[in-house]
């Protein structure tokens, strides 16, 4: 499946807050298929960049452009936050909510949400209140909710931060299968191992600037900048 709303182009995008430039200027394009990993240490601007792409963050300069009319572009993306937003509803109703927004009937929405929930391994917890879930389960619920509209582009902001190995593996499996279904994934992480496992393409950020953009295998075998090299090797960046 070739996405209709890609490609995504950022042209000299800048975000300034309180007189300080926290991101950019950054220019890049995202198109084609696969998983793009935003890699970089804390505070390097990964979250701001993701939010700017998705349209959640007000940009101070430059331009973010998608293909097609604005409403369609907005409706065909989904975003998974670092700490999942829990609605005060049951797990099932949380997952079904985006379908209800699209005008899908309640019974149909709940049935499809139940299928999605089961796919991500929440089958036994669907009737529980969302806030009773554990950290890993919350993230899986957020993933199911994001995927239920079958988005063309899925953004994830550190979905596995604070999760143990098992939950991380389960989430990576879900992401791989979404990728196989043709969802274009853009995800931030500061975990080099995870980046290595998932990345088709890597964008390396440092101090709010895009320092490197390369295919996954190129990036990990021969990083072009000393900062990227240090990050891959687990050295602490200044």
């Amino acid at each position: 499946m070739v996405s209709a709303i890609l490609r995504l182009t950022l042209d000299q995008v800048e975000i300034r807050r309180g007189g300080r430039c926290i991101l950019g200027p950054i220019s890049l394009t995202i198109e084609g298929e696969g998983i793009t990993i935003l890699l970089g240490p804390n505070g390097s601007g990964k979250t701001s960049l993701l939010r700017a792409m998705h349209g959640l963050e007000r940009i101070s300069g430059g331009k973010v452009s998608w293909q097609g009319p604005k409403d369609r572009v907005r409706a065909r993306q989904a975003f998974v936050f670092q700490s999942p937003v829990l609605m005060r509803r049951s797990v099932l109703d949380c997952i079904a909510y985006p379908l209800l927004l699209d005008g899908v009937g309640k019974a149909t929405a709940r049935r499809r949400a139940a299928d999605r929930g089961a796919e991500v391994g929440l089958g036994d917890l669907l009737e529980n209140p969302a806030n009773s879930l554990s950290g890993g389960e919350r993230q899986k619920m957020a993933l199911a909710r994001a995927l239920i509209r079958a988005p063309e582009v899925l953004f994830l902001d550190e979905p596995c931060a604070n999760l143990d190995g098992r939950s991380t593996r389960e989430i990576e499996t879900i992401l791989q299968s979404a990728r196989a279904d043709g969802t274009r994934i853009v995800m931030s992480t500061h975990n080099v191992g995870q980046a290595r496992r998932l990345a088709d393409h890597v964008l390396f950020l440092h101090d709010g600037l895009l320092r490197e953009s390369a295919s996954g295998c190129e990036f990990f075998t021969a990083p072009a900048t000393p900062e990227a090299m240090a990050h891959i090797n687990g050295d602490l960046l200044p």
């Binding site: 409403d71 989904a78 975003f79 936050f81 985006p98």
Partner: peptide, 14 residues
């Protein structure tokens, strides 16, 4: 409640 839901509801294009 809106402070909790803000990002999600904006992201879902409500």
């Amino acid at each position: 409640l809106w402070a909790d839901y803000h990002d999600l509801l904006i992201s879902l294009n409500t």
